[in-house]
Amino acid sequence: MVLKSMVSRRAPLLSTLGISFVVLVLIYNANKDNILSASPCATQNRQHTRNTAQLISQNPFLNSTVPSEKPASASIPVSTSSRKTYAHIIQETPPNAGPEQGFALEYLDQEVQKAVETKKAAIRLLSSPIINQHNMMYLVGREQKCTNMTPEVIITVPSGWGNFEKRQKVRDGPQGKYVRAHSQNALLLFFVGLPPAGIGKNKTQKWAKLQEESEKYADVVIAYFEDKYRNILFKHLSMLQWVINFCPKAKFVLRTDDDVGVKIDSMLVSLRRHSDERQNFILGKQRVGDAPSRREERPHYYLSEEEYEPDTFPPYVLGGAIGYPVSTVKLLYEVARRTKNVWLDDVFMTGICAAALGIPTFNERSFQFTH
């Protein structure tokens, strides 16, 4: 009414134009949000978001959620153009905002692109010819262990064939106690190979003792390969293959060495928590930036350039304690059949094979172990 009265008094032309300009500004500001939300660009953005969510949900190699901690977002600022394009989504971050506020859509775009590329590479790899059969045979298989149960967790322990005292210590330790307390929900198995040639006169006696132990406790699996340190990869594969063949409906696998102290309850809590967020992952004591040993005078870890050419390993977790879902076990086994072997089993399985599929490894405090 005030504006109408002012105009009716035949105000000068300049004043009338000024008033009209003010009216237009007020109308624009009042409807700015509606204009932006109805723009074609915003519609495309919503469609892009739906497509992104669908890609992530269908990809078994990815996390099912956007990471809450955005390590790269701090180094990728949201550009001015992005703030205009996504004005109805992105709010201006207050000067003193914490790291959880704000959301860099450019970071999400990079992750989606990386996810699509990883999935394509994984499909190509899993469709490639098998170069390592890795068809492990068992002298003593314990195939019936999962006949009348579907355990949540299978605790697999690689052990030297003559490590009688160490295996008994595991049975009396956290692993054995957990299995006895959850007898219908957990399983403990030791995996050993055959006695190597030329190990002394008492080989026959030790072999008989191993067979007696296996019959007494019914928890020792004996595989057909020579039980020596540089065959540790075969032992790892024999554990994965056993789970796939004889207990595929189990949920988790925990691999612990026979000479380490671990906290099984805490490890299971971590496995359950991660499984709520993603389908495939590996937990353990993570190593990043390790280099292969090229010193022949240290044969315990020696790895020639012919065996492994790069100067560094991909991130991996130490073999003393490893946790993974059975879905990850199946994927790792199939990749191992299609990838050149590296005898260091933790590097090969949780580093090289996992990286080939984009399966993430996590450093979990609950998986710290002591010797």
Rank of each mutant, 00 (worst) to 15 (best):
residue 281 F to M: 07
residue 316 Y to V: 13
residue 294 R to V: 10
residue 320 G to A: 09
residue 310 P to R: 02
residue 324 Y to K: 14
residue 338 R to E: 03
residue 293 S to E: 13
residue 304 S to R: 01
residue 259 D to C: 06
residue 299 P to R: 09
residue 274 H to P: 06
residue 348 F to K: 10
residue 305 E to P: 07
residue 323 G to M: 10
residue 275 S to E: 05
residue 291 A to G: 00
residue 267 M to P: 00
residue 296 E to Q: 14
residue 295 R to T: 09
residue 340 K to V: 10
residue 291 A to S: 13
residue 276 D to Q: 15
residue 308 Y to E: 00
residue 280 N to T: 14
residue 261 G to C: 00
residue 289 G to C: 02
residue 352 I to Q: 07
residue 276 D to W: 07
residue 282 I to L: 07
residue 316 Y to L: 05
residue 290 D to P: 01
residue 279 Q to S: 14
residue 258 D to H: 04
residue 268 L to N: 08
residue 356 A to Q: 13
residue 294 R to F: 03
residue 303 L to K: 00
residue 334 E to R: 09
residue 314 P to N: 09
residue 305 E to D: 09
residue 263 K to Y: 09
residue 347 V to I: 13
residue 350 T to C: 05
residue 294 R to C: 06
residue 342 V to G: 05
residue 320 G to N: 06
residue 289 G to T: 08
residue 328 T to Q: 03
residue 281 F to H: 04
residue 266 S to L: 07
residue 353 C to K: 04
residue 345 D to E: 15
residue 254 L to Q: 11
residue 354 A to E: 05
residue 255 R to C: 13
residue 305 E to N: 12
residue 311 D to Y: 06
residue 300 H to D: 11
residue 255 R to L: 15
residue 320 G to P: 06
residue 282 I to E: 04
residue 285 K to W: 12
residue 274 H to N: 14
residue 294 R to N: 08
residue 279 Q to L: 14
residue 335 V to M: 10
residue 343 W to D: 04
residue 288 V to Y: 04
residue 293 S to R: 13
residue 335 V to N: 05
residue 266 S to R: 03
residue 293 S to I: 12
residue 327 S to A: 14
residue 349 M to I: 15
residue 267 M to F: 03
residue 277 E to W: 01
residue 294 R to H: 08
residue 295 R to V: 13
residue 342 V to F: 09
residue 271 L to P: 02
residue 265 D to N: 13
residue 356 A to G: 12
residue 327 S to G: 12
residue 331 L to S: 12
residue 296 E to S: 13
residue 292 P to M: 05
residue 354 A to H: 10
residue 296 E to K: 14
residue 264 I to E: 00
residue 254 L to P: 09
residue 340 K to H: 09
residue 257 D to I: 06
residue 315 P to S: 02
residue 298 R to M: 03
residue 307 E to A: 14
residue 340 K to G: 08
residue 351 G to H: 04
residue 284 G to M: 04
residue 259 D to G: 01
residue 309 E to M: 11
residue 315 P to H: 01
residue 328 T to A: 01
residue 273 R to M: 15
residue 343 W to V: 04
residue 328 T to C: 04
residue 269 V to C: 08
residue 327 S to Q: 14
residue 282 I to P: 15
residue 287 R to Q: 11
residue 342 V to D: 03
residue 278 R to L: 10
residue 302 Y to W: 07
residue 348 F to E: 04
residue 331 L to T: 15
residue 302 Y to D: 03
residue 347 V to K: 10
residue 316 Y to M: 05
residue 304 S to A: 07
residue 356 A to T: 14
residue 276 D to C: 09
residue 287 R to G: 03
residue 281 F to W: 03
residue 335 V to K: 06
residue 273 R to H: 15
residue 349 M to Y: 00
residue 336 A to F: 05
residue 354 A to N: 12
residue 327 S to H: 12
residue 255 R to S: 12
residue 348 F to P: 02
residue 298 R to G: 00
residue 313 F to S: 02
residue 295 R to A: 05
residue 325 P to I: 08
residue 345 D to S: 02
residue 326 V to M: 08
residue 289 G to Y: 12
residue 329 V to K: 00
